[in-house]
Design a protein around this nucleic acid. Structure first.
Lengths: 89, 89
DNA sequence: TAGATAATTAGACAAATATCTAAATATTAA
DNA sequence: TTAATATTTAGATATTTGTCTAATTATCTA
């Protein structure tokens, strides 16, 4: 899960996640939202993918990215532990 | 809030937060939990502090650190937006 | 005030990171 | 099969990051 925190530390990657929150997008559509070269965005997508935060699927010439909730939920659980405290002891 | 994500990306810093989850600790007590020099821990503490995730208070010779929940909650809200989705539109 | 203890700041350095350009791969369509 | 489009991979580079040692600051106590 450490990889997810690393992935979340970059603002470009967080913005990518926010974009995908609305709907799946292909790499080109994502890149169009940034003033950055496509290879750079591709690199960020690869980090998000290997951290488990997004998944990709080829659709013809395009590669469509979407959010994978399972790792998000793990990270959320980590935060929840800090809120719970009042309950026990 | 970007600073908080940056701060959370390092495993040592996350472990410090987990330690402080139990109770406030001074810099020396925190350093004792790691195989790392005190200056390195001090550096991590300073990053956590400037990100708003912890606060410090001098008590005599010691400086006691504890978690500041307000930024935690902001970060949590960011994650919540990814869960909510089902509700609107 | 001098010495001891707790912690930080300063400065150096290797490793990791984000970005770019150029080249390669994969798919579609003519 | 050739050309066009979408995307990634490779390689280079400047910046950021995490760590260390040495020096400094702050507090307490004898």
């Amino acid at each position: 899960m450490g990889d997810a925190f690393k992935a979340l530390s970059d603002p470009t990657r967080r913005k990518i996640l926010e974009l995908l929150q609305d709907k799946p997008l292909n790499a080109g559509e994502i890149a169009d939202c940034f003033q950055m070269t496509k290879p750079s965005i591709s690199h960020h997508l690869s980090i998000l993918k290997s951290s488990g935060l997004i998944i990709d699927e080829r659709q013809g010439q395009n590669i469509v990215y979407s959010i994978d909730m399972s790792v998000f939920q793990e990270v959320m659980k980590w935060f929840m532990n800090f809120i719970d405290m009042g309950d026990e002891k």
